[in-house]
């Protein structure tokens, strides 16, 4: 039996961990798939662009 199986068996009444709740819900997963790239690609990129210095000859 795997380590995962043992943990699941030993604490059957524990609340569902957030990682499982996220993985079990396709809509939460979709939201994560939208939020994570938005933060890391778009927001990060906009912050980088906002910090570009003005050209002075």
């Amino acid at each position: 039996m795997s380590e995962r199986g043992e943990v699941a068996d030993e604490r059957p009444d524990d609340p569902i961990p957030w990682q499982q709740a996220l993985t079990d819900d396709v809509f939460l997963l979709m939201m994560a798939g939208l939020v994570v790239p938005t933060l890391f690609y778009i927001v990060w990129g906009l912050l980088e662009l906002a910090n570009v210095k003005i050209f002075t000859p």
Binding site: E3, R4, G5, E6, V7, A8, D9, R11, P12, D14, I16, P17, Q19, Q20, T23, D24
Partner: peptide, 18 residues
């Protein structure tokens, strides 16, 4: 114990572990 009859079905109960 959690049992799965198909990989297409969501597992039942608390399956997440460290």
């Amino acid at each position: 114990m959690t049992t799965r009859t198909s990989t297409l079905l969501a597992p039942q109960g608390r399956w997440w572990g460290p």
